[in-house]
Design a binder for these strands. Sequence first.
DNA 1: GATGAAAGCGCTCGCCG
DNA 2: CGGCGAGCGCTTTCATC
Lengths: 161, 161
Amino acid sequence: MAELKRIQTPAELDDIDRILLAQLQADARMTNSRLAQAAGIAESTCVVRVRSLVSRGIITRFTADVNPKALGLGLQALISVNIRPGARTQIPAFREEIRVMPRVVQVFFLGGAEDFIIHLLAEDSDDVRDFVVENLSANPAVASTRTSMVFEHHYNGPGVG
Amino acid sequence: MAELKRIQTPAELDDIDRILLAQLQADARMTNSRLAQAAGIAESTCVVRVRSLVSRGIITRFTADVNPKALGLGLQALISVNIRPGARTQIPAFREEIRVMPRVVQVFFLGGAEDFIIHLLAEDSDDVRDFVVENLSANPAVASTRTSMVFEHHYNGPGVG
DNA sequence: GATGAAAGCGCTCGCCG
DNA sequence: CGGCGAGCGCTTTCATC
């Protein structure tokens, strides 16, 4: 029986691809020449391979990690949300709404006790409460929320290993 | 009464800093010259300002976002962990341990019903179970865990706005 | 702190082994 | 895929304001 085609390719990465990914994860602004050197390939080859990683959707973007505290957002919260059983059809619309709300760093859509979890940045606790009241509790589709304060957050990113 | 000094500075960002942050968040591999152009400043100034953003800890790193599916990690889980009341002193050691475990994308340390939440990448559900059994349940400090499957995950990053 | 000019270096591209 | 070379664009430093 033939293998099913997946929408998102499982991806074929050789050792050099893995080196490139690891290097670029550690420093996305590394020059192409140093990258090539680290991978042990020619610069011309390196350009092609990096472009290939991007076009194959393996690298989704190059980004700068910004310290939230530097933006005056010293508080973080995790907010669990449950949707009313009768309002489950509204989940797709709701999730798009939430995703683009300011200070929403990330959103998890879950199977399990909670329907989703929102990771929020805030200046202070009033800020968190305002978010919950205005953006969540006010929505008739929302059955309940539960807010936990985040004392510490570590983001590693997907390890290439 | 004088303001208390904070370890992490609340940061002073002008409009140009905000443009640089937004641009670099969107594309960390953007050239300095185009960055300068976008911000309306001289290239030489731009280099200095970007370096300053990094040295002030406002930009913590430049990184490449890698698609987990491309690495063959098509499954994601969120694992809530509670520590035994008697083992709370071991939390600092435990959290370091967890943070560097393979496939742990991020860890939240919480105040509230759960002690922390682990965001895990996995190949399949066996993989998730193995992680929980070997790395969590086996640890005497762990009182209980609860695993939720992640159907969808959106990461925005801290918005500069 | 910002600027422009100039020197040096890095990047890209096509072509060929 | 790697190497080479030409051409161009980019980065960095420094004197200057």
